[in-house]
Design a binder for these strands. Structure first.
Length: 467
RNA sequence: GGUCCCAUCGUCUAGUGGUUAGGACGCCGGCCUCUCACGCCGGUAACCCGGGUUCGAAUCCCGGUGGGACUACCA
């Protein structure tokens, strides 16, 4: 029987969860779900200088928002230094690691001269065979293998072969007694029984060294899957200078989590020609056999399209909840029923929830502002009689639903032998103040009889005083 | 510099020796229509280059070129 699949996401809490990390987390999550395995969250906070609790919280919040539920954790790597030190000691005892007293300055200088002379800037092994003891500020280095090859069997890239002589003796325990990433990650992944290490392909060059450490420690080597990077429009690794890269920034900009998830999963993974995937489908279909090898450029337009797609299909009641923090202060959304109607009217025509909130102003203001150009063109004396007649008829409309209003409008124009076009725009401006809005019938139904009557009367009055 | 990875429309991608190289975003037209949007229809646009292998290469091999990552007492 094959062991249960266990994946992990191991961010360092040095900032918010960014797009790249989110996709890595998503792939880990999907993979574990697909195989009925477990997904572990581990916070890699061994860099005491840069790690913050705020970042940890921000990352957890973002993952929760995206629906990436972890089965275990969060574990905190810094709380596991006891284990790491034990493992370091084990390696030292077995001669597989050694103390080194080279100072950072010395190392930096050696690196520089090596580079200047065209040599590899790898550690020169000064302390490798000195048999040094622990001393203040000393570090521990892993004793690498100098011959042979190490092959990384990667689920997305295939086999990658490294000459061991290229790998230098890297530091596994720092002067401050904390383990370095490459060591802690190995110990933790091994001890947490992680079966599949899924991470960005910026880690491939570290992998052979890590494999050597797994072996030195006597651990089983997990399977690896290195996912290609996400790039900015300039083909450089996606970063802040490319714009919004924080997952939560997208929430604030009015994106739905399922849109982000759907967008992100398609960056590198595909299933034939299909573009839209529910979470259930994703879990069912996701596998590394269809993850591409090449990096992909982040394309905000396509994300926007997906967001519009999911907004259209979303239940107004759910959108009402999602939008609670997005409305401008002026909008009184306390009437949930009314607000949900507003959302229903607007959701087919917006790409973000923020855009929806922004275009809803006329629904909420008692005294609507006419767009100057719109009023100048459509609230003209010629239309006054029609507006007045309509205002007079409104109170008698029994069925104020979209369908009922459609009928009312139809008979209204039929009786006067005019085309709907003749009154549509003036009516729209009267009701919304602008030339662009949801359908007249929808707006009227949502606004309700009283507001409609009041607005048409106000428009008539406006024409009489300004026309 | 060294090591490693990558290479199909502008972008995301399908494609695993024989296709008019498909889909999606964007863009451009048209239809629908009370405006806008949606939707629908159509169009624009790609196999990095050069050698091989083969009857036949986007697909396989080699070499270039280009891009990226790593090369920390960061993760």
């Amino acid at each position: 029987m094959t062991p249960k699949i266990r994946t992990r996401f191991a961010p360092s809490p040095t900032g918010y969860l960014h797009i790249g990390g989110a996709r890595t987390a998503l792939f880990n999550w999907l993979f574990s779900r697909h195989y009925g395995g477990e997904f572990v969250l581990r916070i890699e906070d061994t860099d005491q200088q840069r790690s913050t609790d705020e970042s940890t919280k921000a990352i957890l919040d973002a993952m929760t928002w995206m629906g990436l539920a972890w089965d275990e954790g969060p574990y905190f790597q810094a709380q596991r230094v006891g284990i790491h030190r034990e493992m370091v000691q084990k390696l030292i005892d077995e001669g597989k690691a050694y103390y080194c007293t080279c100072s950072p300055e010395e190392l930096e200088n050696k690196r520089k001269t090596a580079l200047a002379e065209g040599r590899k800037p790898k550690y020169d092994g000064t302390c490798r065979n000195k048999g040094l003891k622990k001393s203040p500020g000393s570090v521990v280095r892993f004793r690498g293998t100098e011959t042979g090859v190490t092959v990384v069997e990667d689920l997305v890239k295939g086999n990658i072969v490294f000459n061991n002589e290229e790998l230098d003796d890297l530091i596994i325990e720092r002067g401050d007694g904390y383990p370095t990433y490459n060591f802690a990650v190995v110990v933790d992944d091994a001890m947490m029984n992680i079966t599949h290490v899924i991470r960005g392909d910026d880690h491939v060059n570290n992998t052979p060294r890590q494999i050597l450490m797994y072996k030195a420690l006597g651990f089983d080597v997990p399977k690896f899957a290195h996912v290609p990077m996400i790039l900015g429009p300039d083909k450089a690794r996606l970063s802040k200078r490319h714009g919004a890269t924080s997952v939560m920034a997208y929430k604030e900009m009015g994106y739905l989590p399922e849109a982000l998830v759907n967008y992100l999963v398609r960056l590198g993974w595909s299933h034939g020609d299909q573009e839209i995937f529910s979470t259930t489908e994703l879990i069912e279909l996701f596998d590394f056999s269809s993850v591409g090898k090449s990096p992909s450029v982040f394309n905000p337009e396509k994300l926007l399209w997906l967001n519009a797609h999911y907004i259209k299909g979303a239940d107004p009641a759910r959108l009402f909840e999602e939008m609670k923090t997005l409305w401008p202060p002026a909008a009184d959304t306390s009437d949930a029923d009314f607000t949900q109607k507003v959302i229903s009217d607007l959701k087919p025509r917006v790409k973000t929830l923020v855009e929806l909130a922004g275009s809803a102003d006329f629904y909420f203001s008692d005294r609507i502002q006419y767009d100057t150009e719109a009023a100048g063109k459509f609230l003209v004396p010629e239309i006054l009689p029609l507006l007045k007649e309509m205002a007079a008829r409104i109170p008698d409309v029994d069925d104020f639903s979209k369908e009922g209003l459609e009928e009312f409008l139809k008979s209204f124009i039929a009786q006067r032998g005019i085309k709907f076009k003749a009154i549509a725009q003036p009516l729209r401006v009267a009701l919304t103040g602008k030339t662009v809005s949801p359908g007249i019938d929808e707006v009227m139904a949502t606004l309700g009889k009283n507001r409609v009557a009041q607005r048409i009367a106000a428009a008539a009055e406006y024409i009489e005083t300004n026309g």
